[in-house]
Each structure stands twice: as structure tokens, then as C-alpha cells.
Design a protein around this nucleic acid. Structure first.
Lengths: 138, 138
DNA sequence: CGTGATATGTTATGTTATTACGCTTGAGTG
DNA sequence: CACTCAAGCGTAATAACATAACATATCACG
């Protein structure tokens, strides 16, 4: 059976390395975090990472978390996710939960329709504490 | 009658200057944009701006746009806005429309409740084109 | 007056992201 | 095969965003 983080075979070397680093990580990584992890593999410059990230994000294999200036692998194995994706980021453990909500998306569409605004991209990020961390703190 | 951008009188000098710069601007400003506008008033270092912004954001007089690394004055004159605020950012003219949506907020609350996640802060930013820019492009 | 909390000014530094330039690779075509 | 065109790659330099560390100032309040 397929590993939960199998990687498309048509990625370039750098793209594969970067996606591998993201898949391997528990939480989000900054571009420079990724670079540090991949120095052993020959990467030397931020741009090598940013270029790979651009492609991965473009293809939906990774996501950028704007409020962290960091990146995560897409949680959807088959990367079919379309439209609005929301992220819940735990301030305690740093883990990120990715989800989609059709109601929110629809509601946003209504707002946009009423305003004549054409939506191209939406970022939605919730900061807080996950259940595990709350339980641990209690 | 009150000016639409009257400023609370208990702000410090730097806070007042920074909020003034934001109020005066058509669109979002980066901290360094603000600094440049305020050099004539004696500001010299980024930190002076960041410190003022921290306070303004804390008080809800300004908002940070994560996807732009920039700031806007709060659109609500009386700064009573609580809870989730969404921003629609036009890629054409750079203007930002601020709005609140109770349905989205509630929906998010439901998700959080089901997951046991405690929400502390939410950022929601829509990128796209506003009606004016769409009309102009047609 | 003293003292603690908040704000300030300044320098230096850390972190994130892009520009500019030239070389390499590989698919597709004449 | 040779050509070329698009995509990717490597490197250096720099731009843009943000904070640390430290000293001084201001002001409410006991």
C-alpha cells in the first residue's frame, strides 16, 4: 500500500527534497528551516528552496501559512483539495490541522458576489490551542 | 461633527503619529512605509514604529494583514469590532475592505468545539479584484 | 520623594524573500 | 542530428521585514 506521504514522481530533485522535508516534519517549517535540513543534500541558497516551494504551492502539494511565514505539506494524500482551505495552528505544540468548510466558502462567495469582488485566493488561519495541549495544561 | 478618523486622545506621540499615517493612507502600509512617512516627525528606527503598531493592534485601532506584512487602520470609527474580522484585498488598487461575518464565525466556532480547539485569534484574508478594478479592466 | 510600569531612543542583529545573471537540461521540431 | 525554447538550477548580492539588548525618560501613585 501507498505510504501516506508518497510524492508525485514528476517532481524535480529540489522539489522532491523540499517536499520530503515538509512531509518529514511534525509542524510547519520556514524556508530557512528547510534549507538547513537540506544542506547535507547539497542545497546552499534560499532561492533553491523558495523556487521549489513556489512550484509545490502552485500544485497544491504544500501550503504557505501567512501568519507564520512558514510552509506545510498538504494534508490531503491525493492533493485533490480545491478552493478554500483553513488551518488551525496550535500555539502550544505547533501542529497544524488543515480543513475545508463548504459553508464558509459559500458564505464568502455570497459576500464577494454582493460586492462585485472576484476572489482569487483566500487565506484563513486560526491560532489557538489544540485539545491535546489544553488537556496537558489542565 | 467628528472626523471619520478621529483618534483616541490617550495615545502616545508615536502611536498617534503611526495611526495618523495609517488613517491618511488609501491602502495598507508596511512598517517601513510608515517609518518613511514619519521621518519628518522625528522617527528614526523601525522599532519605534513596530512598538506603536503593537499597541494599536492590541487595542483594535489597527489591523495587521498577514498576507501582505502590512497594516491598516481599523475601518470601524468607534473601534468596537470584536471577534473575527475578514479582509478583502484588491490586487489591482491595493484597497482593503474590512468586514465581519457572524455565520463564518459561528461555523468556525463549531469546528473548534468539535475538535476541542480553543481559538485565540483568526486571520482571514481574501485576495482578488474589487468591482472597480474589474470594471476598469473590462 | 521613591518606585514601578510604560514609553522612548539607538545600535546592532536576526529572519524572511527577491533580483540579477549565467549555465544546464531535456522535450520537441525541422 | 542540430536547434531552440522552456524550465530548472547555482550563486552572489541585496532588499524587506522584524526583534534583541541596553540605556534613558516620563508619569501615575503610594
Amino acid at each position: 500500500m501507498a505510504h501516506s506521504h508518497d510524492v508525485p514522481s514528476d517532481l524535480t530533485r529540489n522539489q522532491g527534497l523540499v517536499l520530503g522535508a515538509l512531509n518529514h516534519s511534525e509542524g510547519p517549517l520556514s524556508a530557512y528551516d528547510i534549507l538547513d535540513k537540506l544542506r547535507a543534500d547539497g542545497l546552499r541558497a534560499p532561492l533553491q528552496v523558495y523556487r521549489a516551494l513556489d512550484k509545490l504551492v502552485e500544485r497544491g502539494l504544500a501550503h504557505r501559512l501567512e501568519s507564520l511565514n512558514a510552509f506545510v505539506a498538504c494534508a490531503d494524500e491525493h492533493c485533490h483539495r480545491k478552493g478554500l482551505i483553513a488551518f488551525a495552528i496550535c500555539e502550544g505544540c505547533g501542529k497544524v490541522d488543515e480543513f475545508a468548510d463548504a459553508v464558509i466558502e459559500e458564505r464568502l462567495g455570497e459576500w464577494a458576489g454582493a460586492k462585485g469582488f472576484k476572489v482569487e485566493r483566500t487565506t484563513m488561519e486560526i491560532r489557538g490551542k489544540c485539545g491535546v495541549c489544553l488537556a496537558a495544561a489542565a
